[in-house]
């Protein structure tokens, strides 16, 4: 088939947003939108689901809390091969709950440590961001001041070009077929 990839460039995020809404109302699939900054409301206009990053952070935080609690329990209360709890400065550690207040700071820090770092790693993983990755948007100007909408057209693209420029695209480029 004769598939074409169109890159519509917009100068302003409000025009882009209007165009996205118009195209979506006509059931035209938008492949991707690249923008230099987060455009408010664009994720809803494109019909994205809510991101689950915050949920992962909550789960990682629970893991961190459990890790901190177990670590302290093992070291201070019931270490393997240890027949009595540590007694430091006349303050023995008979049970976990007796000493609980003194354990709160480190349990809290473990929660934040796990939640923060593991969420960041998940974010890098899901976005495929890593040192050495060379992916970039089709047009380098999209990190500066241009907004780019990527649309795949099957067959004749005249109508689509007209629609895009009617909704405010300042220029429309076609993906070079030699490009991968």
């Amino acid at each position: 088939m004769n598939k074409k990839v169109l890159y519509a460039i917009f100068d302003d995020e409000e025009i882009l947003l209007k165009s996205v809404k118009e195209l979506r109302s006509k059931d035209i699939a938008i492949e991707e939108v690249y923008s230099p900054f987060p455009v408010h409301g664009l994720d809803h206009a494109l019909g994205f689901k809510e991101t689950r990053m915050a949920i992962t952070a909550f789960i990682y935080g629970c893991v961190g809390l459990a890790f901190g609690a177990l670590l302290i329990y093992y070291i201070m209360i019931s270490g393997v091969g240890k027949s009595w709890p540590m007694n430091i400065g006349g303050k023995p550690n008979w049970t976990f709950y007796h000493n609980f207040p003194a354990f709160v700071p480190i349990m809290f820090e473990c929660t934040v440590l796990f939640a923060g770092h593991l969420m960041a790693l998940t974010y890098f993983f899901r976005n495929q961001l890593y040192p050495g990755a060379t992916t970039a948007s089709p047009d380098p100007r999209t990190t500066d001041d241009k907004f780019l909408m990527e649309i795949v057209v099957d067959g004749d693209d005249k109508e689509m070009r007209k629609l895009l420029s009617d909704t405010g695209a300042s220029e429309i480029n076609e993906k070079d077929s030699n490009d991968k």
Binding site: V33, F37, L42, F48, T51, A54, A136
Partner: peptide, 24 residues
């Protein structure tokens, strides 16, 4: 890190920034 500014990435970016702020 191969950033391209995709709409989905920005959505995650904003959420991650907010949650990290809440943690920090």
């Amino acid at each position: 890190f191969g950033w391209s500014g995709r709409a989905k990435h920005w959505q995650r970016f904003e959420e991650v920034s907010l949650v990290l702020a809440g943690l920090a």
